[in-house]
């Protein structure tokens, strides 16, 4: 069906097979005589998807690399994994990697580190210095010294929750569950308050099985809806507010590939920061979706499936590269752009 007529060679080989005659010699002879081109070396592997930015882009804001932690020169901080970053009090940087929580001063000095629970996948730090760590189906709560304070289970038990992001919204804990494709709302004691992403919505589309969220100073919840190539915003009651973004490889403001953006953070002044795979880049938008800046792929490994993000009080964008096991801090150029207010 749909195949070409068998060649004489193929007929002979099939007949040999039917007769049970070892055909190694015959195959070798035919292969060498009939298909000399099969001895060619493998063609070169073409590169990953090339992002064609046909339209020129003049950023209104600029960011410069100001600090690198991790595999910089001979310093190896993270050995196996780098899977989350958050900002705490006094702009301390909390990093989840190698099964531990690392706490750095804003300048990069390591303050302390302590062991986290197994399968930890994300973290957030509350204003009172409690560290909330999400793992498979649970949230564990630790003090700043690593002392465990408590925890609670996620989901209604019908399906194991896949906790991929955790944030704090006033007194609520928001837990992104990629298995259920929604955001759970819990109080500090683990009492379920509701969910976000289901009202007027069929749930987030997550082909890459990960959902990242962020909360801004107005308590608006932002979600990286990767399968729809958009960023969506929600209020605390779960009502949808708006969205921006679309698929595209020719305009820098668009999101490339099958599913992007994969990561999201919010700056104190309301700027939205997104992380993309394939293009391996970080972009900064206004809250209305206007592209402001791009932190290009030259800084990150092209094989990254994630670029974990956080923004401190000074607008510095902290990016965790899980392939190169590096933490990079990008400071805004204060002479670029117009200071935007919400």
């Amino acid at each position: 069906m749909g195949t070409s007529v068998e060649s004489k060679q193929e007929k002979l080989l099939r007949r040999l097979k039917e007769l049970g005659i070892p055909s190694a010699a015959a195959i070798g002879a035919f292969s060498s005589l009939a298909k000399p081109e099969s001895r060619k070396t493998a063609p070169p592997v073409p590169p990953l998807i090339q992002v064609d930015l046909s339209k020129p882009f003049a950023p209104s804001h600029k960011y410069a690399l100001s600090l690198t932690l991790g595999r910089a020169g001979s310093v190896h901080l993270f050995s196996n994994s780098l899977i989350g970053v958050a900002i705490g009090a006094a702009d301390r940087i909390y990093v989840l990697g190698d099964g531990q929580v690392f706490i750095f001063e804003p300048g990069g000095n390591l303050v302390r580190k302590w062991k986290a629970q197994e399968h930890a996948s994300c973290l957030v730090v509350s204003p009172d210095k409690k560290v909330f760590i999400g793992a498979s189906g649970r949230v564990e709560i630790y003090g700043d010294e690593g002392n465990r304070l408590g925890g609670f289970s996620i989901g209604d038990g019908s399906k194991p929750a896949s906790v991929t992001s955790i944030k704090i919204n006033r007194s609520e804990i928001l837990v992104a569950d990629a298995a259920a494709r929604l955001i759970h709302r819990y109080d500090i004691n683990g009492r379920r308050l509701g969910e976000i992403g289901t009202q007027g919505h069929s749930g987030f589309m997550l082909p890459n099985r990960t959902l990242d969220i962020a909360v801004d100073s107005r308590n608006v919840i932002w979600a990286a809806d990767a399968g729809r190539h958009r960023v969506s915003s929600w209020n605390s009651d779960g009502q949808p507010i708006g969205r921006f973004g679309k698929f595209g490889t020719h305009n820098v403001e668009d999101f490339v590939g099958c599913c992007n953006p994969v990561n999201i953070a919010v700056a104190p002044d309301g700027k939205i920061v997104t992380g993309e795979k394939v293009a391996a880049r970080v972009k900064v938008y206004s809250s209305e979706g206007k592209i402001l800046a791009v932190i290009g792929s030259e800084h990150f490994d092209p094989n990254c499936l994630h670029l974990h993000l956080a923004v401190d009080s000074k607008g510095r964008v902290i990016v965790a590269d899980p392939v190169r096991l590096q933490l990079k801090v990008f400071s805004p150029d204060i002479n670029s752009g117009v200071r935007e207010s919400l």
């Binding site: 195949t3 070409s4 068998e6 060649s7 060679q9 193929e10 080989l13 195959i27 035919f30 292969s31 298909k35 081109e37 099969s38 060619k40 493998a42 063609p43 592997v45």
Partner: peptide
């Protein structure tokens, strides 16, 4: 790498 297409003894 495309060699499965070109190297099989079958034309398809």
């Amino acid at each position: 790498c495309d060699l499965c297409r070109t190297s099989c003894v079958l034309s398809h």
